[in-house]
Structures are given as C-alpha cells and as structure tokens.
Design a protein around this nucleic acid. Structure first.
Lengths: 195, 195, 195, 195
DNA sequence: GATGAATGAGGATTCATTCAT
DNA sequence: AATGAATGAATCCTCATTCAT
C-alpha cells in the first residue's frame, strides 16, 4: 500500500544506471560510439528502449558520463605515493600501466577511440593531454633523482613506450609480448640506481 | 569536340576515383567511418550522391579500398634496403616512422581508429599484426648484429615506443615533443655500434 | 495522528483534482492540447506522473472534463435574467463578453483552439453551436422589443462582433482597443431605445 | 544516357514541393500542426517518409514555409485599389473577407490555430497584428471620407465583425448565416453615403 | 560517366500509460 | 492516495542505396 521509500527508489536508480553505464561502455568500446545504437544498449542491458532516457538525457550525455567516470577510474588506478622512493615510483608507474591494460581494457579502448576523432568530443583530448603532462612531469622528477646522466627525453620516451604497448595490445592483442616487455622495463629501471 | 579516346576516359575515371578516395580518407580519418555519411563525401568531393556508387559498390567497399591503399602507402614509405648496414636500417626505420607521423597522419589515424574497433573490419587487425611481426623481426635481426648484449625485448620495445609516439601525436598533437624524442632515439641507436 | 475522516479525504481528493484541472487548462490553453505532455502537467501540478491517472482515466478524459467545466463557467458567467428589460439584457450580454475576455482567457482560448480542429473532439463544436444559437435567439427577442426597424441580421452581427473581439484579443492582445470598442457598443445599444 | 536537364529537375522539385505543401496545409489546418505526423503527410502526398526531408529541413521549416505562403495568399487576396472611391474600398474589403472564408478556409483556419498558441511560433502573431493595424487604418481613412459623424471605433468594430464571422464559420460552419450577414453589411456601408 | 529525386529501414527520442509498492 | 520506475509504440529525422534519364 505504502509507496516505495526514497531510499528504495534511489537504490533502484543507482543500480539501473550502473547497469546501463556498464553495458554502454562495453558496446561503445568494442563497436565504437557511432556504431552502437541505443536499442542495442537497451537490449543488452535488458531494459526497454525508453528507460535509457529516464537516466540519461541523450546518448551523448550517456557517453559524457562514461568518459568522466573513465577518467576517475584512471585516476584511481594511477595512485601515486609521494612518500616512496624515486625508483619505486617509476616501477609502480610501469606496473599500474600494465594493470590498466590487463584490467581496464574497455575503459582505455574507449578513451583511445574517442581521442582519435575530432568533433564534438574534443574535451576528451584536452583531458588526456593534461593527464599526459602531469604523468611526464612526475616521471621526470623521479628520473632526475636516480640518474645523474638524465636525458631530457627519457620521461617522454618512457610514456610513449607505455602508451605504445597499450595501443598495441588494444589493436593486436595476444600478438604483443606484454610480459616480456614488462620484465625488460622493470629490470631496466630497477638496475638504474646501481649503475 | 573529338570523342575522347579510351585512354582519356580511363584517366578521367581514375582521377575522379582518386578524388573520392582522398576526400573519404580525410573525412573517415577525422570524424570516423560511422560518423561520416556518403552524402558528406559526395558534397566535399563535389560530385552527385549517386556517382559514388558508380565507382564503389558500397560505403563499405570504399572503406576497404582505402584501407588497402593505406597499407600500400605504409609499405612504400617503409622501404627497407637489405643491402644497408644494420645501424642504418634501424635509424631509417625510426626516420620513416616520424615521416609517417608528419606526412601521412590521415592514413595512420584512420588505421588506428579502425584497428581499435571490433566487428566487420577485423581483417585490418590481422594486417596490422602481420606488419608488426615483420617489422619487429627485421629490427631484431639488425639489433643482433649491432649489439652482442642484445635483449630479447629490445625490438618490441622500440616498436612500442614508435607506435606510442604515433598514437600520442594523433591524440595530443603539439603537446608531444616529437623532435626531442626523435633526436634521443636517433642518437641512442647511432651510438650503439661504438660500444 | 488521528485517521482522516471520510470527509477530509474527499476534500483532499477534490482539491488535488482541482489543482490538476487548473494546471492542465493553463497548459492546454497556452501550448495546445497536443503539444502538452502529461509529464509537464504533473510537474507543474507538483504531483507524480502516475497520480494523474488516479484522477483521470486518460489525457483525453482530462481534456473532456476541462471542456465540460469550461462550458459551465461560460454558463455561469453568462447568467441571463429574464426579468430584466430588453435593453439591459443586451447591454449585459455585451458586458459579460468583455468580462470573459478579461477574466477567463484560458477558458476561451482553449475552447477556441479545440473548436478550430476536427477529429475526436467534434462534440465541442456542437456544444459551441448550441450555445451560439441560444444566445442569438435571446438577442433577437430583445432586439425586437427595442427596435421596430429590427433587422434580421442584427443579432448575428452583434454576436459576430463580440466573437471577433474575443478572437482578436486572444491572438493580438494589447494591439486590440477593447475599451474603445466596448464603449462604442454599449453606447450604441443604450441609445437605441430612445430612437 | 544523358542526365536529366537542370530545368527538368527544377520542375520535378517544384511540383513535388507544391504537392507536399498542399497536403501539409490541409492536414495541419484540420488536425492541427502537433497532431499531424510527418508520416501522415507523406502517406497523403503519396511519397516516401524520407522524401519530405529532401525538400524541407524539418517539420517546423515546413510549417514556416506554409505560414509565409499563407500570408502571401492573404496579401494577394486582399488587394486594395487606392484609386477607387472610399465606399467601394469598404465594400470590397467586406467582399474579400467573405471570399477568403469561402475559398481559403484551410489557410485561415491554419493561421487562426497557430495564432491562438504561444511558443515557438510567436512571429505569426506579430505578422497578424501588423496586418490588422494596416487594414484598420485603411478602413479608418475610408470611413472618415464617407461619414462626417465618424466614430473612432467604427473601423475596429467592422474588422472585429469580419474576424468574428470568419472565426464562427471555422468553428460552426453552416450554423452561421454568412449570406444574411454579408448582405446586411454590404447594405449598411452602401447606404452610408446617402445619409 | 553523371545527376539528384526517391526509397524505406533504422536511429535517437518522447510520450501516454501501467504497475509494484 | 501517492510514487516514480518501467514499457513500447510512435515521432521526427538520417542514411545508404537505387534508378530513370
């Protein structure tokens, strides 16, 4: 008789929204945003066509929300501990990258795709650039501490290598020897200080 | 008013086709294949809607042809001279990559985009993988000759770095210090032999 | 926390219904029935989407009830006192019209709108016609008493003039000099008897 | 073999567009703009759903074009000959109104409907107001010449009467004795000068 | 080879209405 | 009585593609 409580409604909303966001991320990431129809999202999420619009004003807004959540996921995965030694910081940057590749492929594939296009979603490129600059700077600081013969390009090259591995895995999957490269990179930056 | 010769017709046809392919590549590469309409292509190519179908069976076939041409462009740009010394081969691989980034951004952006999606165009990923394996092998052979302390991962890492720079430039443009990285890479592999 | 009495429930129900009817009339009248969504009505009435259907079987029934209430309002505003003199009857008909224009614009705008369309709501046109015939007949009777030179078309023309002013105010608002016309009409039919 | 000439295309376009405009006017006018679907228009016009958008950017633009054409029709119907005597000008204003009612009901019904709503189409009300002011002024000038006892409200009242008849016919059709009123009006303004 | 009118399936979105609570 | 999540038909519009000329 009594209507559902506010809290109950909120829970329903939250879980339903989460569901849609997850399904949409998966589809956008594998087929691309423009090649994914809202109908497909609804079908996979097992909801009606209309319900999506109860939670998101438009397909575009759905994408935007996914992007913003994705950036948060990246931020959370790439936690940097400033207390730690320079070497550990570098090593853990590398490890976090490989973790992303392993665990959050949907997220990074989606970001990569959107980043490669121009148009309405240029804000994504700006967000990526900002993150890139931040990461490179952290690496530079750490590298300087370790290596007196520090090369100005070193940090950028390391980032490029990591981004490259990421990109290659997204495109070529198992063809890419990630473990081999991870070991080599880890070893290189572990040894460094002893030189 | 003399009737055009067969050869002339052929040339007109060829240049018209070329025109369409160029326009389509530009649009696909910047807005994405699924976000580009055949009408937009026709407009920009200054031809009628229907004419496109005189040259290509479908939008998909147009894409396929673009992809195949793009691979040819990559192959032509990445000419390898087996006669040359190992060091020069590596250096020129690096140089050819930066040349691609500089001169053929449309081509690589389009390939990268399509490579990140799954679906009807999975043959692209296979072609990219094949090319990757070939390039890596060539690099491995060359590196072995130069360096006795040769690391198994070295070739893969170099390719990853180059792909990474490519990807970063596509996404972040001027934010990326390409010249700096190019110098560093070139220097690194020039010095190698002297060790 | 005493349970509400039946009467109290009844009152709440009635006032809630009244609220919905008022909001709906306002919206229908300004934006049109077909351009107004039940959701908009619910929002403005500060009730939930579903509650509307607790009071009305459908959007159409809501409209129907509004129409019937509107006719009652017209009837109540146009009270005719048969006891009064012919002249006063005419003058007060005029006055009642201007009062409607001034005070019940929502009601008449809505009626006018629905009356101009054909389809499911043709009963409205019949009701309007019936009212028209009644009014014209009353006017004819009154005019005959006053004027021996009575023209057969006089009553119809007076009604047309009044309907015209109404329509003009609805469409053009302040552009229409209602007071000027009201004075002129009142004067004309006040003087009549002295001729 | 040879493509259709430009002129041929233009003719096709023109007649097809005309067809759509006519069908849309009919439907908008009888069922209302918001209650008419583009599909209904296409069906009645015996064209495909999509073709409409080859001629009009949107349903709204289709309406806008209809409105502008309708105003032109009104202007053409209400041609005023400034050479003629004041009396004839008044009489012919009256006659043109009845002609509109008789021959262009779709047009005026559509204008009346749109004029009664507020929202995106307020420009219609402004156009109607402008036309009203112009007409009233012409009538005032003419009436002054004829009648020394000229009443300031006379022109407005005549316009109101004509608009009222128009409105009444649209809503009540045959219930309204148009001929009777036309005769009475004509007679009244023919006699005037003899006073 | 070339045109652009025409098609109709499919896309995003809105809406009246239902229902469990 | 009241809530708002959920439905799916219907809406406006776009698109790849075809076809007569």
């Amino acid at each position: 008789m009594s209507p559902k409580s506010k809290k109950q409604f909120e829970e329903i909303r939250e879980s339903s929204k989460e569901n849609i966001l997850n399904v949409a991320l998966k589809l956008f990431s594998s087929k691309g945003y423009f090649n994914t129809s809202t109908r497909q999202i609804a079908e996979r999420a097992k909801i009606s066509n209309g319900l999506l619009y109860n939670y998101f004003k438009s397909k575009e807004e759905l994408l935007t929300e996914i992007i913003h959540r994705s950036f948060k996921i990246l931020d959370n995965t790439i936690v940097s501990d400033k207390e730690q030694s320079a070497e550990i910081q570098i090593i853990s940057t590398i490890e976090r990258f490989f973790e992303l590749i392993d665990k959050k492929q949907n997220v990074i594939r989606m970001m990569a795709q959107m980043g490669l296009q121009t148009g309405k979603f240029d804000f994504i490129n700006k967000m990526i650039s900002k993150k890139y600059i931040g990461e490179v700077n952290k690496l530079k600081t750490a590298l300087k501490k370790i290596d007196s013969n520090f090369d100005e390009a070193e940090a950028n090259l390391l980032m490029a290598t990591l981004d490259g591995i990421m990109f290659q895995v997204l495109v070529m999957g198992d063809v890419i020897p990630t473990d081999l490269m991870k070991s080599a990179l880890t070893m290189k930056y572990s040894k460094t200080k002893h030189i």
